[in-house]
């Protein structure tokens, strides 16, 4: 059946099977592989995207259920070459190592800051509690979100740190 939705500000129309999950619609039908596909059981949260501004696990949502709605993925965070403050925060505070959980974490962080621009640590930990990171122990993710809260319009581009040879 035909579905039409707005993905990262662009209206898309595709013919899909009703059983197609939103995560596969984004990754395979639209080629937006920034959304990761993890546990497939709504536990790990790497597939989180925003539907009408709210974090949703796209492995447990049918693409047809988002017909007429607005979807935002990690590809829709940056404004051209300017990264979203949450992306900058994850860079500044080392919010990722392997990067698998990162797209979901970034979107949940974005939704949290849209709702609560100055969340404390407990609020951040609660917001990301449905998402699993196996690298950071969450400490740097929490710091990254705090960084974004403290730099709401991001930061001017910093010169890259020199890495000793």
């Amino acid at each position: 059946m035909q579905v039409t939705m707005t993905v990262n500000g662009t209206e898309v129309t595709r013919d899909v099977e009703p059983r197609l999950l939103l995560v596969h619609f984004l990754r395979e039908t639209l080629g937006l592989t920034g959304t990761h596909w993890g546990c497939d059981t709504s536990n790990c949260g790497t597939c989180v995207v925003l539907v009408d501004g709210q974090p949703v696990k796209s492995c447990t949502t049918l693409a047809v259920m988002t017909d007429g709605h607005e979807v935002r993925t990690v590809e829709g965070l940056a404004d051209g070459a300017t990264l979203d403050p949450v992306q900058q925060g994850f860079m500044a505070e080392h919010g990722l190592q392997c990067g698998f959980c990162t797209p979901g974490m970034l979107l949940t962080a974005r939704a949290l800051l849209d709702r609560d621009p100055d969340p404390d640590e407990a609020t951040i930990r609660e917001a990301i509690s449905g998402q699993i990171c196996r690298c950071t122990g969450y400490a740097t993710i929490v710091r990254s979100v705090r960084w974004a809260a403290e730099h709401p319009v991001g930061a001017p581009e910093q010169p890259a740190e020199e890495v000793p040879a």
Binding site: S42, G45, Q54, P55, V56, T60, T108, G130
Partner: peptide, 9 residues
Amino acid sequence: IADPVVRNR
């Protein structure tokens, strides 16, 4: 109940 993301749905 579940987690905050699941509770959105």
